[in-house]
Amino acid sequence: MTEPLVEIKNLRTHFFTDEGVVKAVEDVSLTIPRGKTLGLVGESGCGKSVTALSIIRLISPPGKIVSGSIAFYDDGRKIELTTLPEAEMRKMRGSRIAMIFQEPMTSLNPVFTVGSQIAEAVRLHHRVSSREAWDRAVEMLHKVRIPDAQRRASEYPHHFSGGMRQRVMIAMALSCNPKLLIADEPSTALDVTIQAQVLDLLRDLQTEFGMSILIITHDLGVIAEMADDVCVMYASKVVEYAPVVELFTNPLHPYTRGLFASRPEPGKPKDQKLRTIPGVVPSPLRFPSGCKFHPRCAYAQERCKKEEPVLRRPNLSQIPPSHVVHCHFAEQIEEQEEAAVKSV
């Protein structure tokens, strides 16, 4: 197996608020392969964004990485990000690890031209003249397919539409050839056609630049289109982790099953209501005991209330070793479901 780009082991990120400790990320381990895309999926507040912000170390107080390790493999060097001094970390940000955010409308500074904002990133990490940095900014705007890039570089963010601003964000993020691009809900705030364009662009740029992408989303459609591997998070934990095709054909965790069942499907009668997962996401201040999903789980048993499961390979012949799940009864549930399908 080739060396991964990022390896996160047992990461815990907690927020020490006045109301108590919010365990936003609990014992999360994942691997971002080189040049590939890892999708992080889950509901709002499940800890996916905090996981991403932990990698780039932009957790604001009272948040803190409590334990665990984040290893970044850069040209054969292993860099431990959790303990890297802030000055060194700053050099990583923008140059090795770049990030784009959900809100393209507010993520650019309104008082600077887009060209200068990109050029600033370039000059920060490379010894180039301001002229060269500006040319690079124009080149990047051209690469993200902004028409008339030369002229538009000297315009302000408010002259751009949401989709165009997200392209500017991508241009800025990629201006220093990062090894990892973290895309936190990059298309959520955009309308559907623009969404597809931005995702296409990201994929094309990945081919061109060869970076890894960590894409965070709650949209399974985005995952299907973008990701190579998928990590499903629920209530600060990884509940299922598998290659994308595997996950879509054999979802094992009751939560993942619920997510798939609640999708609208072409061909289904329109008047049929979508299935939902009963209950709500638990508050991170009052997580349930045992398996955190048990109050909402149709298959929950006594054991689920008491004992927290571990992330493990299920004992099922058709499941490849790369597929892991965080459930005591993954095998039994799979058999039940198989039987139900056969009986129909």
Binding site: L58, R93, A121
Partner: peptide, 24 residues
């Protein structure tokens, strides 16, 4: 959000404060 963007670019805290934030 744009302050977070500036930090994600790798800009130091002083410059984020005195340039990106103060300018606004």
């Amino acid at each position: 959000d744009y302050i977070r963007t500036a930090r994600a670019k790798g800009i130091g805290p002083l410059k984020v404060l005195c340039w990106h934030a103060f300018r606004n």
